[in-house]
Design a protein around this nucleic acid. Structure first.
Length: 963
RNA sequence: GGGUGCUUAGCUCAGCGGUAGAGCGUCGCCCUUACAAGGCGGUGGUCGUAGGUUCGAUCCCUACAGCACCCA
């Protein structure tokens, strides 16, 4: 083995090896265990959130595979309608073309070409973080198979009356020219104004003042609403007003939607361009008046003067004209929430358009069939309410149920070209024909079309196809094998439906609405099954200060930069490349130069993964600190060097290396190896029995943490075991054993070193697959294991190991004695190189036996001469002492220690213990504590006070001896 | 306005009813033959504030303050 751990070398070969060996495919044996990858955007690149999420999934899949489950990690990407179309449109823009210049077919062809060339970026990056996914089954939402599922779902829902076409107010992105989901709209606080405008009654006798942040929409006003109990306006209700600038007349209506205390208490109603106003208009049967075109310019319903003006130019013109007419009463600054499209940053304009919807709200259809609420929404709610699907952490189920309880019908049409084209046709009379294709649509219709049929131009929302992911990727609705474009079989519903429901979905909370809920709805409806049994909501990754990562802040991290490392200058260049505003560029550059003056060190995939695991508690954000990752790289190095130590000691004595003939160990899941066939006898030393006991406990904890998704605790258990127990104590204890006279103990220790190391490599493999595999390459054969590589080894089971709690007591005592000596050495500044005398005094029979047993190890590890006992009552030299129970562990002062300093040290220790004793006495002196506290707590308190008193007695005796 | 969280060592976070923990940082001593990405030993916290429940509260309850996020 190399002298230190070099991640780049290790990582380069193993992934290809695993993939080629078919290790990621379902074994076909054991209980099915499936994880669905939330399909990343095909346009995307791997960010920290992906890396974190995928590490979690990978740990689970690798663990379950080792446990013998039939695992499938179903991967793929989604076609990301808007994002992908935009990328290609931007490319066309460089050539000074639009998609309309190409035409629909040529454009789509070009998008496919882009996808073939660039769409695999993120899946290649996933391989770098070690994702053990079954790439042979990789899918894309626009695959033929998945598209067939989309068509079938659309048609079935349409024929069940659950999909309808309607003219509704939707969030319209005037830049992209499409409807967008309300989940793709952010309400952003902006500085704006509140304008007060006077509307006169038609008889000229009175007026009222409305307050608005969007004065231009007055051109589409159909009423002014006031609160029904608002006395200020009571006489005006029912009267008509002159709508300024338009020559139209509108009524004053009463509606308790109006907040009397907001603005003037009188609200202009523009149903065609505001969601609240739309509802008011419906209640009062007022026809909406649209005043904008689809690119947000004033249309022909407005007075000629304003036609063709952009909405913001129209605002200026309207305000100027109102002011001129003396109808503008007040202008004041106002903070308002502006709806911004996530996809284009454009201000959303609510617009009345013809769209397709999935009914999620009606109880019963007009013809008596079940409506969407009953058929789709309720089953999805029930699945969570009755516990079929569990959220982890549990409280996310509230978010889920509250959202579904208040859900609106789902607008599924998008005015794009890239996506699944809606399988609906229109005849000359506007009748709708739905089917697999035009022929099917005709055949399925009850009436003959009038004239030619024309297919709907629109495509479906990307999430419509993503919602089918749990079953469409498994081959549904095809009967037999589904092949990809290369003719390879990627799914077969008949066989693969065993993977439904999948075991767990790992995803971010922001996706609960977009995707989780919709998968439950579609999967329940079409298969009758739930899509997954558990939903693990992972935390959102932020920077070390808890700030959201954003390119314009310059605090993003590319997981691949952490893995490979990057110099400062390339890092600055790549971080500022996409930033167009010079001030932002400068700010980002400054920050990066400050945060990473030396660039980013390479920490490797394993350390990055371990860091993610260690940070994955149940909290909803994790703050990623590179320092933490560097610490876990050190852990990898520690493991590496521990392995080197073990192997070096085997090499030194090849006769006992395999050990199958001499001393056998508990089998610990060694399986069909040579070792297991040898008669197991107990390990020879206490230290071995102790480390095996600790290993057993650790493995049991790790299994528990996998069940509860506490990867932070899992990582910590393994970290502690490897570093603080195996390396710090067992490896150290093995040194005297290996160098001692007892050949049986040396041989046994060699084997235990190896057996424990091999087990811990297996336990760590799901977290840090590369380094464990690399180390195992040398370790496995030494145990006579026949597996080709670690990935094929079974999970090490706690129950295969025999615990020895007596040994634990012995080693704890040993650690206390050794720590006591080290403490004195350190505090008294005795050089670590110097061998010092060591004396024991007092103590009980078991101390006597233990000293005899561990004398050699104590001398070796504490660098002392052979310890001597001082008989009770005999004279003893002035010494510094550590107290372990009743035993005094003493280092004579002569030439080593300052008497005064030792007295101070002792006095400090005595007073510390006196405080502890006081605390105990306080509790035990309280009658109600003794009466009410559980017996074991009282007993524990009594034991503590006894122990403290023993220690105190020994310390006082020591102090007295020093005079 | 409705909802969900968070507030514990300098930093990032566990713990959640019975002796306050980890990693990183920091301080001291050591290049001791697996590892200086290391070893050994320290320092560091009235667990946001105020009440309440309890024999006992960092942990449960109430209120308040501050900070996030989600939905209107």
């Amino acid at each position: 083995m190399e002298k230190s751990f070099e991640p780049a070398q290790i990582e380069s070969t193993w992934y290809a090896h695993w993939e080629a060996s078919g290790a990621f495919k379902p074994s076909g044996q054991g209980e099915p265990y499936c994880i669905l990858l939330p399909p990343p955007n095909v346009t995307g690149t791997l960010h920290m959130g992906h890396a974190f999420q995928q590490t979690v999934m990978d740990m689970l899949v690798r663990y379950q595979r080792m446990r013998g489950m039939n695992t499938l990690w179903q991967v793929g990407t989604d076609h990301a309608g808007i994002a992908t179309q935009k990328i290609v449109e931007n490319q066309l823009a460089v050539e000074e073309k639009t998609r309309h210049d190409l035409g629909r077919e040529a454009f789509i062809e070009r998008v496919w070409k882009w996808k073939e060339e660039s769409g695999s970026t993120i899946t290649n990056q996933m391989r770098r973080i070690g994702a053990a996914a079954d790439w042979s089954r990789e899918r894309f939402t626009m695959d033929e198979g998945l598209s067939a599922a989309v068509r079938k779902v659309f048609i079935d829902w349409y024929r069940a009356g659950l999909i309808y076409r309607g003219n509704r107010l939707v969030n319209w992105d005037p830049v992209l020219g499409t409807a967008v989901s309300d989940l793709e709209v952010n309400n952003v606080e902006r500085d704006g104004h509140m304008w007060s405008i006077r509307y006169m009654t038609t008889d000229g006798a009175a007026s009222l003042v409305v307050a608005t942040t969007r004065p231009e929409t007055m051109l589409g006003d159909v009423a002014v609403a006031v609160h029904p109990e608002d006395e200020r306006y009571a006489p005006l209700i029912g009267q008509m007003l002159h709508l300024p600038l338009t020559g139209r007349q509108i009524p004053v209506i009463a509606d308790d939607y109006v907040d009397r205390d907001f603005g003037t208490g009188a609200v202009k109603i523009t149903p065609a361009h505001d969601f609240n106003d739309y509802a008011v208009g419906q209640r009062h049967k007022l026809a909406p008046i649209e005043i904008f075109t689809l690119d947000a310019k004033v249309n022909d319903n407005a007075p000629e003067k304003y036609r063709g003006l952009d909405r913001y130019d129209a605002r200026k013109a309207v305000l100027a004209d109102l002011d001129a007419a003396d109808l503008l009463v007040e202008t004041k600054p106002h903070k308002l929430q502006v709806p911004i499209s996530q996809r284009s940053d454009a201000v959303i304009e609510p617009m009345l358009t013809d769209q397709w919807f999935v009914d999620l709200t009606s109880e019963t259809l007009a013809d008596g069939r079940p409506g969407g609420r009953k058929a789709i929404t309720e089953p999805a709610l029930d699945a969570v309410r009755n516990g079929d699907i569990k959220f982890v952490p549990e409280n996310w189920s509230t978010t889920y149920t509250q959202w579904l309880d208040n859900i609106q019908d789902w607008c599924i049409s998008r005015q794009l070209w890239w996506g699944h084209r809606i399988p609906a046709w229109y005849d000359g009379a506007g009748n709708i024909f739905v089917g697999e294709d035009e022929a099917d649509a005709r055949a399925s219709a009850s009436t003959a079309p009038v004239g030619a049929l024309r297919q709907d131009d629109d495509v479906l929302d990307t999430w419509f196809s993503s919602a089918l992911w749990p079953f469409s990727t498994l081959g549904w609705p095809a009967e037999g094998p589904v092949k990809n474009e290369r003719g390879e079989v990627v799914a077969n519903w008949e066989q693969d439906k065993i993977f439904l429901p999948s075991a767990v979905l790992v995803t971010g909370f922001d996706i609960i609405f977009f995707w989780v809920a919709r998968m439950v709805m579609a999967t329940k409806y079409f298969t009758g099954k739930i899509p997954f049994r558990e939903v693990y909501i992972n935390a959102i990754v932020r920077d070390a200060e808890g700030q959201k990562m954003s390119k314009s802040k310059g605090n993003t991290l590319d997981p691949l930069d952490l893995i490979d490392g990057i110099e400062l200058e390339p890092l600055v260049a790549k971080s500022t490349r996409s930033l167009l505003i010079p001030q932002v560029r400068a700010k980002v550059e400054k920050r990066i130069r400050k945060d990473y003056p030396d660039g980013i060190p390479a920490i490797g995939t394993d350390a990055l993964r371990f860091t993610f695991a260690a940070l994955a508690s149940y909290s909803r954000t994790i703050n990623f600190d590179i320092k933490r990752a560097e610490g876990y790289k050190a852990f990898c190095n520690k493991l590496w060097n521990a392995a080197r130590f073990v192997l070096m000691n085997l090499d030194a004595d090849p006769a006992t290396a395999v050990g199958a003939t001499s001393v056998a160990m508990p089998s610990i899941g060694i399986g069909k190896s040579i070792a297991a066939e040898a008669a197991p006898t107990a390990p020879a030393t206490e230290a071995e029995r102790w480390i095996l006991t600790r290993l057993k406990q650790t493995l049991a904890e790790v299994e528990q943490h996998f069940v509860s998704y506490r990867f932070d605790h899992l990582a910590q258990s393994l970290y502690e075991f490897v570093w603080n127990e195996y390396c710090d104590w067992f490896l150290e204890l093995s040194k005297p054993a290996l160098n001692g006279d007892d050949a049986a103990a040396a041989a046994s220790t060699r084997r235990t070193l190896l057996v424990v190391l091999e087990s811990v490599l297996r336990a760590l493999h799901p977290v840090i697959p590369f380094i464990t595999e690399e180390i195992w390459k040398d370790v496995g054969p030494k145990l006579g294991l026949t597996e080709e590589s670690l990935i094929h080894r079974p999970w090490p089971k706690a129950e295969d190991i025999v615990a020895d709690h007596a040994a634990t007591g012995e080693i704890e005592w040993f650690k206390n004695v050794l720590s006591g000596i080290r403490k004195i050495r350190s505090e008294m500044n005795i050089s670590p190189a110097r061998t010092i005398p060591l004396l024991f005094a007092d103590g009980d029979a078991s101390d006597n036996a233990r000293v005899a047993k561990f004398a050699a190890q104590i001398s070796f590890l504490a660098r002392t001469e052979t310890p001597q006992w001082i008989e009770a009552g005999a004279d003893e030299p002035a010494s510094a002492a550590a107290v372990v129970g009743a035993l005094r562990v003493m280092i004579p002062l002569a030439g080593l220690i300052d008497l005064a300093a030792e007295k101070v040290r002792l006095a400090k220790e005595i007073s510390r213990i006196e405080v502890e004793i006081k605390k105990c006495e306080g509790k035990l002196g309280n009658a109600s504590f003794v009466a009410n506290a559980p017996a074991e707590v009282v007993a524990q308190e009594r034991q503590r006070i006894t122990d403290w008193n023993t220690t105190l007695g020994a310390l006082r005796e020591q102090a007295q001896k020093l005079g």
